[in-house]
Amino acid sequence: MDVEFRIRRFDGEKSYWQTFNIPVKRGMTVLEGLYYIKENLDGSLTFRASCRMAICGSCAVKINGKPRLACETQILEIGNSLEVEPLDNFKVIKDLVTDFEGFFKKHEAVKPYLIRKDDNYEEPVELIQSPKELHAYYDFTLCVKCGACYSVCPAAATRDDYLGPAAITAAYRFNADSRDEGEKIRLALVCGDNGVWRCHFAAECSEVCPKQIDPAKAVQKIRFKSAIETIKSIFR
């Protein structure tokens, strides 16, 4: 069966649509379709891909208007014609490749690592954490940083410096970790002018997350915590 791929291309100066027809078998993914085009029809088609098993987060693109991981999207589930575009809210470098530099900088900015006073590199000790404590944050560790959430966020669309759902989720993941002692430090970082208060709960991030992480939930949890801390500080 032939499927029509309409691809939004960009060569550094101008942006245009290009259409390819490719033969599709049951089980073929959009990423395999893109590779088919690159290998057989147009070698200059540019996209990112690596693991092809939905764990590395490279291949998030907009498919029929919705951001998805190309590698885990079955072509035939979408239909017999589809539109592939680069993610919104990111600067396009070439074809489907977008600039993730700022995205990773924002992730870095929330100090997404365990902060402990007794951190000892030479002589580490086993920390005790019950399955229940693990469960409290585990789902939020599954973020692959694919950028899907950021690309649909209306707050990120109009504020370049908004940290975005992924970075705030990373902060929440560590705040909720029973081994961590850096909650105060991280709260100060994510509750500033470009932080959680920019969120207006469109909740689209949770809708598109390919790992079903619920970033919107993490943002609200931090926001609530921050409100409580602020109120407390008034009476202190």
Partner: peptide, 22 residues
């Protein structure tokens, strides 16, 4: 073994036994 503990101290979400051990 030390490498496992280091990763634990750095935040790796190892699966746990009921007692909270790795």
């Amino acid at each position: 073994p030390k490498e496992i503990l280091r990763l634990d101290n750095w935040g790796c979400p190892w699966s746990r036994t009921e007692d909270g051990l790795i």
